[in-house]
């Protein structure tokens, strides 16, 4: 079973985000970059499927040259090989262009399944997996929290408002992974050593990307400074009064 896993390198969720001097991007000079957390669930799901069904796992990423670090992490977790589509300043590249580049690379390979994170925690756009599925005319199930594979039959669970859906489809398919699907493993020393010998194929983008027309980036409005109402249970009546009379929310 050959699996493609889509990977993006993103700022760590604990990172403070600063807007760059041009006011349209972010300053990445001193940010810790990591594998997108949702993509880790996808890598882990792929590793578990490989343990049962065999086959090969290929990571595919679009990003600047530095994104090889994220791919190395995925290889150290146990993926077999990786492809980096090199594109500088691509963090906010429009999702359809990203999907086109990824589809092109995927189409050159034999695969049974494409896995990705539910979304990347930088742009929060949550659509590249779906756009690839539409482009390649494949079934898509997004934000899965359970996965069951029986022959070519996929059964996955996704949580929606008011309940949980069980969705079925046939392979080949695109599945995107939500927190709760599994617990991603940490790369061990042996994995890290082996990853150094695995190949990362690099591709250049020839036709360039269409950037989203970002007018500006801004910080969320600063809230007025809050107040400490008091200490301990004695402060509760005053809190309730403020919520009712000042804030008018209850």
């Amino acid at each position: 079973m050959n699996i493609i896993v889509l990977v993006k390198q993103v700022p760590d969720t604990e990172a403070k985000i600063r807007i760059s001097d041009d006011g349209k991007h972010i300053d990445e000079s001193s940010i810790k970059l990591v594998v997108n957390p949702y993509d880790e669930y996808a890598i882990e799901a792929a590793l578990q499927l490989k343990e049962t069904h065999g086959g090969e796992i290929t990571l595919v990423s679009l990003g600047p040259a530095g994104a090889v670090t994220a791919l190395r992490t995925g290889l150290a977790m146990g993926a077999d090989k990786a492809v980096l589509i090199k594109a500088d300043d691509s963090r906010f590249m429009d999702s359809q262009t990203v999907a086109n580049h990824l589809s092109k690379v995927i189409k050159e390979r034999e695969f049974d399944l494409i896995l990705g994170g539910k979304k990347a925690v930088d742009t929060d756009a949550q659509q590249v997996g779906s756009l690839i599925a539409m482009d390649l005319n494949l079934p898509i199930i997004t934000a899965i929290v359970e996965l069951d594979l029986n022959g070519n039959q996929v059964s996955a669970v996704r949580e929606v408002e008011g309940g949980a859906e069980t969705v079925t489809c046939q392979l080949p398919a695109v599945l995107t992974c939500e927190k709760g699907l599994n617990e991603p493993r940490y790369p061990n020393l042996r994995g890290i050593m082996m990853a150094k010998k695995k190949t990362i194929e690099e591709k250049e983008i020839s036709d360039g990307g269409i950037a989203v027309e970002i007018v500006s980036m801004e910080y969320p409005p600063q809230k007025a400074e809050g107040q400490i109402v008091g200490e301990g249970p004695d402060a509760v009546p005053e809190l309730v009064r403020l919520l009712r009379e000042e804030a008018k929310v209850i």
Partner: peptide, 9 residues
């Protein structure tokens, strides 16, 4: 974006 750490126009 970034879960609301910044806003994109």
């Amino acid at each position: 974006v970034f879960a609301g750490k910044t806003l994109m126009n």
